[in-house]
Every structure is written in structure tokens, then in C-alpha cells.
Amino acid sequence: MKPPLITRIETFEFTVNLRNISGSSSGLGLIYTPGDQGTVGRSAMRIETDAGVSGEAAGQMIMAVRQADLVARFLIGRDARQRNEIYRDLLFELRQHDALAIGLIDICLWDLAGKLYDAPVYELLGGRRRPLRAYASTYHGDRVGGLDSAQAYADFAVRCQQMGYTAFKIHGWIDADPGEEIATIHAVRDAVGDSMALMSDPACAIATFVEAVRVGRACDEAGFAWYEDPLWEGGKSFHVHRMLREKLQTPLLMSEYLRGLMAHTDAAIAGATDILRVDAYQDGGITGAMKIAHVAEGLGLDVEIHSHSPAHRHLMTALRNTNFYEMNLVHPDPKADTSAVNTYTNYRDGLDAIDDQGCVYAPEGPGLGAQVDWDYIHAHRTGGAVYER
């Protein structure tokens, strides 16, 4: 086969509309705000080759395509099949940055490879199509009639359970009060019984170590599946997370806010976490995410994939040491369900995107099997660039 050489890369910045959602008072997160309407920036990319095959993907972080300005021109003329070499070279070129651009580039190259070989990405990764057990991952708490109390979380968990979900994750309040977090943990467990897997993710909102231990021990009492990123420092201190692990029975999940293979490996070896978190968009694409998953497997650990996307369904399908697909972020108000914000024409996530067993599947068809909605993206485009010979 003649090498398919990259001839053109186009990046896209665009906006998607949000309803009943706004930034928190701190400006550090999205919370439920009835009546508010706004937009959030998203990114997409298309990589074309002289073989007439292209790879494409729509992402989440707009900074990824802005960072691509630093490296995209170096990819023109490269063999699009050489994903590992490109991954390595991009890491070098972006060594002074967080390397977010690698994620979107690599996902496009995997989509391209699947189209080139007429196979879905999960088959190229060695997987077979199977049901992926999903969990409902909530918004942060609010004070305006949505997820505004322990009872509101409990009621929503029961609703999700009745829909078919077998797992539910609590994102508590950004202005976290440990007593309120603890009450919510117990209220949700009491409401759904023992048959539903539960998780707590304060998203780094717990202010002190002592408070993080208190909330973690409530997770112990309620039999939670994991306790995720509680500490305010964002997962950067392996020492403090190792101390927290030693005081709890519930598995600790940490590393969403780390970037790349080396940081995840160091966190696991340092004993800072029981479960690794990985995101193909943030951790070097599917290539980088597979490397992290294999490190975790070698150490006897599980890896959980952050948030929803076609790429993440393919990734999860090919992994043994993973448990749940994150439907993120969901809310009792269906108009505020950001997991349902869609930039594909033949694929969707969302609270109601599961089957009656609470599962989802990787798309079928070559590559990612998900067609980017280019009409929508062009209509809402705010920026981007073209790189070609």
C-alpha cells in the first residue's frame, strides 16, 4: 500500500448553545440556572491525505485547536499511519505545554486509519463490540431548584435507576459543605438500595484534608465504588493522596487533572490512587490513552474513561480493565443535559441514550463511525485555520 501522506489539516472553533446553564459564581464550573442561555466554545479537526481518505473528530476543549497552531504544519507530508511516531514527535514539540493538541490530532488519525482499512477503531485496537455499562454523572449542585438538596440527588438517582442505569455519580456543590456532601451520600444510597454502584466526585471542591477524610468515610459507610478527586489542590500532590488512601476503604480515583502517560504512571507508582482516570482528548489521544491503560493493567489497576464521546466508546470497548462509561453531565431538567449537546449527525449521548440494561455501544462502521455535523459547525464557526502544502 502506498503511504497515505497528510496533505491538509483544517481546524475549527465553533460554539454550541446551552440552556438553563451558566458559570458558577466563582467562574470555575457550569451549574444549573433556569432561564439562562449561553454558548460554550468547542473544537473540531479534519486531516486529509493524498489517498483520498480523511480523518475527523469534534472535541471539547477549544484550546486544543489553538495549540495545534504550533505543530500542524510539521505534519504535512507525514505518513498518516505512523501514529506512534507522530505522538512521540508532538510530545517533543509541545514539551513546554500541556500537549492538548495531540488528543484531537491522534483521534483524527485513528478515524482515518479505520476508514483506510475499512474497520471500526475498536477492531484496530483489538476489541470486539460489547455492551458498555453507563453511569449517570450529575451536574454540580445548585441552590435554585435543581440538584439543590440531598433529597433532590436521591430522587434523581431513583429516576436514573428506573431508566435502567446501574450506576450513578454525585458531583456535589462547588461551595462544598462536608455535612451536606455526607448527607447526600447517605440519602442516595438509602434511596437506591444496594443494587446500584455509586460514586462521589467533589471535583477538588473539598477545602481541607480533614474534611476530605470525613466525606471519604461516609463513602466507606455507604459502600461507594469510588471517591474521586476530592482535594482542592487538583491531584498534583501524590503525597497527600497517598495519605488519604491510607485512611479510607473506598477506592480513590485520581488523575483527571494530570496530563499524559508519565504523570499518570508516577501517580500510580507513588500509591496516590487506586484507579486511574484517562481522557483521550486530554492525554495524547487514543494512542496516549491506551498507553496509560496498559500501565494501569500492568500495575493491577483499573482505568476509568472521562466523559462521553465516540472515541471513548471505542477505547472502552477495547479495554479489559475498565468498568463504566460516563454519561456526563446529566440533570433532572432535560434541557440542561450537556451530555446531549451533539455535533454528530448519526451519533448521540444523553441521559436517555442508554438501552434498557443501562448500556451503550461503540458506533459501527469504518473509523469512529460517527459523522461530524459539518453543516452545524460551519454555521457556528468562530475561528480556525488551514495548513497545507
Rank of each mutant, 00 (worst) to 15 (best):
G164F: 02
R46P: 00
D279A: 08
D36K: 07
L252N: 07
M196L: 05
L100K: 05
M254C: 15
A336W: 05
D106V: 11
K2D: 15
H239R: 15
T265Y: 12
V192L: 03
L100F: 06
I9F: 01
T287H: 14
R88Y: 15
R133L: 05
G285C: 09
I377W: 01
E13P: 00
A176C: 15
E180M: 13
Q249L: 08
Q96A: 03
Y87G: 14
F74V: 09
A176L: 15
G164L: 01
Q282M: 13
R83N: 15
L5V: 14
H97E: 08
A101P: 11
R19S: 13
D175K: 10
T273V: 09
L299M: 13
D352P: 03
A218E: 05
V341R: 09
S339V: 01
L18T: 11
D337F: 00
V386N: 00
L319C: 12
D356C: 02
E123D: 14
G223I: 05
A187D: 10
E180H: 11
G350Q: 05
K247E: 11
K115N: 05
A293N: 11
G27C: 08
E85F: 03
V386C: 06
R128T: 14
I76E: 07
F324V: 00
G126C: 10
R348K: 13
A318R: 05
T250H: 08
S307W: 08
K291C: 03
S26P: 09
Y122L: 05
G126L: 11
Q282E: 13
G38N: 10
A154P: 09
M61A: 14
N321R: 13
Q161H: 00
M45N: 02
W374F: 14
G384I: 02
A57L: 06
D201F: 00
Y227T: 05
I102L: 03
A183K: 10
G365F: 12
Y347V: 02
H171Q: 11
M290P: 10
Y135T: 01
K2R: 13
I275H: 02
I286D: 07
A119K: 07
P131R: 05
